[in-house]
């Protein structure tokens, strides 16, 4: 990083103008503080979500109903951890050490997506996480291929490619349940009912693009509502085709506008989930990780090399 100030209104305007022209920012370039901070916040939350997203699915590797599902679920969760591995590195290139992010996460100080705060009850939840929740993530991640921070965009290329595999994995599980026994079908329908609101929450409030700082600063390229509409477009018809009911009675596609109408989700509940006291599921997943982390303190330097901060 150069000695030049990172708070320079003129340079900042020039920087924003370059972003508007489609310039991609490399880690060694000058960047305003706001740009760095917003990116770190967003990318760290993304990486945290990959880790916290691995945990609910991980619970089902031990319980998977066939050996094929057992190993493909293990491989799928492995990819999520792999994504965390790639994405933490991007945040690191902006100056935030991975160990600090990790320790904040398990201390309950790291933010992550709402959908990973919920418990799982049945294999139907595995189907919903694998297809619908992952589908929501695919929609938002694909929009990140245009993000302005070059290392992030490069990593997203690989992540999005792997997510295409996860899409198939999820749809395959979903279709098997939908065409299975009545118990399997009910298992799926109940899980869809549980996941509907969290997924609607996932995209965030319909804040207009011009008021979204993440869009202004070129982190995100698309508004929350555009992403939600794309998800509804893709996934609702697929559920209907399987005979699965979507639990919002108001949900309807308007061919005139090309837009979906839906019941506004309860935004206070979202705020409660992501900012309030941790849910029981999150508290126990984090507590257990803390316990493992503390118990293995003797191992950290061996497995990761000495902490550079401590060595300095």
């Amino acid at each position: 990083m150069s000695a030049t100030s990172t708070c320079d209104p003129v340079r900042e305007e020039e920087f924003l103008a370059r972003l508007d022209e489609g310039h991609r920012v490399e880690p060694y370039e000058w960047m305003p503080d706001t740009y760095r901070t917003l990116n770190v916040k967003f990318i760290e939350m993304h990486a945290n979500s990959e880790i916290m997203g691995a945990l609910p699915e991980r619970e089902w590797i031990a319980r998977a109903p066939t050996l094929k599902r057992k190993r493909s679920l293990a491989a799928k969760v492995q990819d999520e951890v792999g994504h965390a591995h790639l994405i933490y590195r991007v945040a690191e290139s902006l100056g935030r050490p991975r160990r600090a992010m990790y320790e904040d996460l398990i201390a309950g100080k790291g933010r992550f997506h709402n959908v990973f705060h919920y418990p799982t009850y049945t294999w139907g939840d595995v189907a919903c996480i694998g297809f619908l929740v992952d589908g929501a993530a695919i929609v938002t991640q694909r929009a990140l291929l245009d993000t302005s921070y070059a290392p992030y965009a490069r990593v997203m290329k690989r992540v999005v490619a792997e997510e295409s595999l996860h899409y198939r994995h999820g749809e395959d599980i979903m279709l098997a349940l939908a065409s299975g026994t009545d118990e399997q079908f009910e298992m799926l329908q109940e899980a869809v009912n549980r996941w509907w609101e969290p997924i609607m929450h996932f995209f965030g409030t319909a804040v207009p693009a011009e008021q979204d700082p993440m869009i202004r600063w070129g982190v995100k390229g698309r508004s929350n509502e555009a992403s939600r509409q794309e998800w509804l477009n893709t996934y609702v018809p697929k559920m209907w085709d399987m005979g699965i009911d979507t639990p919002d009675p108001k949900l309807a596609y308007d061919p005139e506008t090309g837009w979906w109408d839906y019941t506004e989700p309860d935004w206070d509940r979202l705020a409660q989930i992501v900012k309030g006291e941790p849910t029981e599921a999150t508290a126990s997943r984090l507590y257990w990780r803390q316990l493992l982390h503390r118990h293995h303190a003797w191992l950290h330097d061996i497995i990761l090399g000495p902490d550079p901060a401590a060595a300095a």
Binding site: A176, A178, S179, D241, G243, D254
Partner: peptide, 29 residues
């Protein structure tokens, strides 16, 4: 597999003909 699920839905009396967008090719599909 999609066709089998559609038929299973029909057999359950849950076939669905509500208005929906024309499917677009989705990257992962």
């Amino acid at each position: 597999k999609r066709e089998a699920a559609r038929q299973a839905a029909d057999a359950r009396g849950r076939g669905d003909l509500r208005e929906r967008p024309v499917p677009r090719r989705h990257g992962g599909e």
